[in-house]
Design a protein around this nucleic acid. Structure first.
Length: 812
RNA sequence: GCGAGAGUGGUGGAACUGGCAGACACGCCAGACUUAGGAUCUGGUGCCCGAUUCAGGGUAUAAGGGUUCGAGUCCCUUCUCUCGCACCA
């Protein structure tokens, strides 16, 4: 048989309609002030990094979901902004350049070309006039502009700090980029290294980043990840005077109520007071320990179940609540980067302190009790629960919460301490010692210090280099270009040196959603009226792997932009949905090494883009991970072929059968609701049910067919256009009004009522819908099978649920 | 270890505020059409027992318990898996 006779000719249809959309700019969108706010929607996909591997099947999943949703919104009268672009700065292109000498721009732009072609082959309704790439100087001009704004506000600062350094990528990494002690990108163990860095003061936004999570409609699990990452904790900073000489040790504690149980103190090895406190006798041991700790990697220091180590400094401090002299130790279980880098140790109520105390035979004093009485005998582990104070002098008997308030007030009165809030969140290590990124637009001048490149001179172009090889010395390959590095100070005109670090990949992706609003603007990152027209993003779809990276950084920058009046809202993304991962066949992760990677290009060639789209949506709920199945996509293609064959049937005259009309309206209702709520899998199932029934007819009723084509079009847009045209209609189907369901017709006339005895189904009966409970009960008792089984017994209880069931309860 | 989420046929998954478990699809089985089929169509398909065709019955949502006329759904305990954090004082 001729191919194409009984299957949809997707190989012809799909390029045909893609060319049509492109030629007519069908999905170009402009700002029409006549469209009211509630009829506008900004639907955003996380833009891809254009890797050399080409599109992955995971990309089309989220893109298809938003595309269906956008097409649904347009059919329902919305003006929809739906753009796409490329996150095109980044390490892989640079590593490729090191290997082959190809300029990262050349390989990146080739990859972008391939990505664009692949994305277009899936028939997404993007407004391609708004496409952006973060490596484009017209784009990164504004990334640099935002950086300078941050610098002006004191949010970007330079420091030599010990940071996570990837020896393979030869660059510093942000905390967020380290997973299990390894570089997130390449898996190499990171080391601690002192490098001159640019940092972003994200910590000064910690409180707002935390509080404003309550304003957005995001998955709870993701909000929780951000909350935990920010890690706010409330307590007190307390001063412990040194026993000898001036000064004191400041500690942070969340449990000031346990102050009476503080029996020793511990300083981080890097703590500035270590040297002063160390006595002559302990000098050797302390120096050796500090040196050892310095050389340990972060992973070794934070190793899971390792034994606690430490040394006594020989020095003492005074516990301010009871004037007791307590020893000061040094240990690497205290981190210099959190709190004050020093703690009061309360071994009775903190497991870490307990282990340390047991190991070094330090006193353990219980100061909290669950029942208000001190425990008899030795404690075998720390008890971190709240309770009632004991062994705490005048405070005995106070419950933990109350004690915290009182002691904090007491400390404040005595100038011995004050309430304090701490965050786990660290400032964002922002500079990279690499080539392929935005140059940081600053000049170092001996006279004037750090001077910004004037705004009107932006973009500061990324210069060409002879070698992309990272130096590993803390300088980027840019440092080797002397005629670029050596420049004039913009302020005094004297000799200056350019900053040679570049920005991290996250910089460009921090604000790309704003550039789509006004991609060609050369006077502002986006005109404020366009920002006001579209922002905030109504729906943002992408993977969960960006929970504490892109999504945290973007929120941070957005708030900075909000503070300087560049945007209209304090949060960028009103609603966020994480798509699940698509796994390989068999439920394992897709990877080159396993050889189970599915190539979208091949899938499209074999099954068509519509089938690919439909299948990815039919696999299961958008949010969950699910395995790919080639047989599964074949099934979905069968459905599309069946639809095609139906379209080839001759038209029927006269009114369609009433039952099919009812099914049509139930289908309109179900598909519409499920599309609106992103439950695409069940919407597709309903379309399948409908087509199965329609296929039983000899001829095709236009009244049953036309609305179906409109339901299908958002899911299979190429076939949708083609079927619309076959109906004698003019393209495009994309802006046709969505079918309306007749509620009257969605209601069933009859319902199958289940008759149960003691909860077990014993009979079924088709009855008119809407019968009352008492009528149902009568029907149940009159049913012959029920009468037979009851054998004259009277039910002790009858539960009748209208339109559903009757349950007869017999005997007790 | 802590935090979050999830466990439903051979497989992916359905199931509204507790109300017929397994929609839809894959796979499999049988039949039709066919020179052929990764084609199409029809029927069947959780498991167990039973009935030669029409019956029918039992059992079942990770395991165990509880609430209820009724539990995949609510509560408790246990187990498994996935994700996040990991000495954050």
């Amino acid at each position: 048989m001729m191919p194409g006779m009984d299957t949809q000719p997707f190989a012809q249809i799909e390029p045909k309609w893609q060319a049509y959309w492109e030629k007519h700019k069908t999905f170009r969108v402009t700002e029409d002030p006549a469209v009211p706010r509630e009829r506008r929607a900004y639907v955003l996909d996380m833009f891809p990094y254009p890797s050399s591997a080409g599109l992955h099947v995971g990309h089309p999943e989220g893109y298809t979901a938003t595309d269906i949703y956008c097409r649904y919104l347009r059919a329902n009268g919305y003006r929809v902004l739906h753009p796409m672009g490329f996150d095109s700065f980044g390490l892989p292109a640079e590593n490729y350049a090191i290997k082959t000498g190809t300029h990262p721009r050349a390989s990146t732009e080739a990859n972008i070309g391939r990505f664009r072609t692949q994305i277009k082959a899936l028939g997404f309704s993007y407004d391609w006039d708004r496409e952006i790439s973060t490596h484009d100087p017209r784009y990164y001009r504004w990334t640099q502009w935002i950086f300078l704004k941050c610098w002006e506000k004191g949010l970007a600062y330079e420091a030599v700090v010990p940071i996570n350094f990837c020896p393979s990528c030869k660059t510093g990494l942000a905390n967020e980029e380290v997973k299990d002690g390894a570089c997130e990108r390449c898996g190499t163990q990171v080391v601690r290294k002192d490098v001159r860095q640019w940092l972003m003061r994200i910590t000064s936004y910690a409180e707002r980043l935390l509080a404003d999570l309550d304003k957005v409609d995001w998955p709870e699990s993701l909000k929780l990840m951000q909350r935990n990452w920010i890690g706010r904790s409330v307590g007190a900073n307390v001063l412990f005077p040194l026993a000898a000489g001036e000064g004191s040790i400041e500690v942070f504690t969340t449990r000031p109520d346990t102050l009476f149980g503080a029996t020793y103190m511990v300083l981080a090895p890097e703590h500035p007071l270590v040297e002063r406190l160390t006595t002559a006798g302990q000098q050797g041991a302390v120096s050796a320990y500090v040196e050892l700790a310095r050389r340990k990697s972060d992973l070794e220091r934070t190793d899971l179940a390792k034994d606690k180590t430490g040394v006594f400094t020989g020095g003492y401090a005074i516990n301010p609540v009871n004037e007791q002299k307590i020893p000061v130790w040094v240990s690497d279980y205290i981190l210099i980067s959190y709190g004050t880098g020093a703690i009061m140790a309360v071994p009775a109520h903190d497991q870490r302190d307990f282990e340390f105390a047991v190991k070094f035979d330090l006193p353990i004093v219980q100061v909290v009790s669950r029942d208000g009485k001190p425990a008899a005998g030795q404690m075998t582990q720390a008890d971190a629960e709240e309770g009632v104070a004991v062994n705490s002098g005048q405070f005995d008997g106070l419950p933990t919460e109350e004690f915290k308030k009182r002691i904090t007030a007491w400390l404040e009165r005595g100038k011995l301490g004050r309430r304090a809030v701490n965050y786990k969140l660290r400032d964002w290590v922002f500079s990279r010692q690499r080539y392929w990124g935005e140059p940081i637009p600053l000049v170092h001048c001996d006279q004037c210090g750090t001077v910004p490149v004037p705004y009107e001179e932006l973009p500061l172009l990324l210069p060409e280099v002879a070698s992309y090889q990272p130096t590993g010395t803390g300088e980027s390959p840019l440092a080797a270009i002397t005629d670029w590095v050596n420049t004039r100070c913009p302020k005094c005109g004297g000799a200056g040196r350019r900053e040679t670090n570049t920005m991290p990949q996250w910089a460009g992706s921090c604000w790309y959603y704003l550039r789509y609003l006004d991609p060609a603007n050369d006077r502002a990152l986006a005109a404020r009226d366009k920002v006001d027209y579209w922002m905030p993003v109504d729906l943002y779809v992408g993977g969960a792997e960006h929970a504490v990276l892109h999504l945290l950084y973007a929120r941070f920058w957005h708030k900075v932009l909000y503070d300087i009046g560049a945007v209209n809202t304090d949060e960028p993304f009103r609603r966020l949905v994480n798509q699940g991962m698509i796994l390989g066949e068999g439920g394992v992760k897709m990877s080159k090494s396993l050889g189970n990677v599915i190539n979208p290009e091949e899938v499209i060639r074999e099954f068509g883009a519509d089938a690919m789209r439909l299948y990815e949506m039919f696999m299961g709920p958008l949010e969950v991970s699910k395995p790919w199945s080639t047989q599964g996509i074949a099934g979905v293609k069968r459905f599309l072929d069946r639809v095609w064959r139906l379209s080839e049937l001759p038209a029927a005259a006269g009114a369609p059968p009433a039952e099919l009309e009812r099914l049509l309206h139930r289908t309109i209702k179900k598909v519409g609701e499920d599309t609106r709520t992103l439950q695409f899998n069940t919407a597709i199932a309903q379309m399948m049910i409908y087509i199965t029934e329609l296929a039983k007819e000899e001829k095709l009723h236009p009244a049953l067919w036309k609305p179906f084509v409109l339901l299908l079009a958002p899911y299979a847009p190429h076939l949708g256009e083609e079927l619309w045209e076959k109906l004698g209609e003019k393209p495009s189907v994309a802006f046709q009004a969505y079918p309306q369901c007749n509620e009257e017709l969605t209601r069933e006339e009859t319902r199958e009522i289940v008759f149960q005895i003691n909860g077990k189904v014993r009979a079924r009966l088709e009855l008119a819908a809407g019968l009352s409970a008492s009528e149902l009960e009568k029907q149940a008792l009159a049913h012959p099978r029920i009468q037979e089984l009851l054998a004259g017994q009277k039910p002790v209880k009858v539960i009748a649920v209208p339109d559903r069931l009757v349950n007869l309860v017999v005997r007790g």
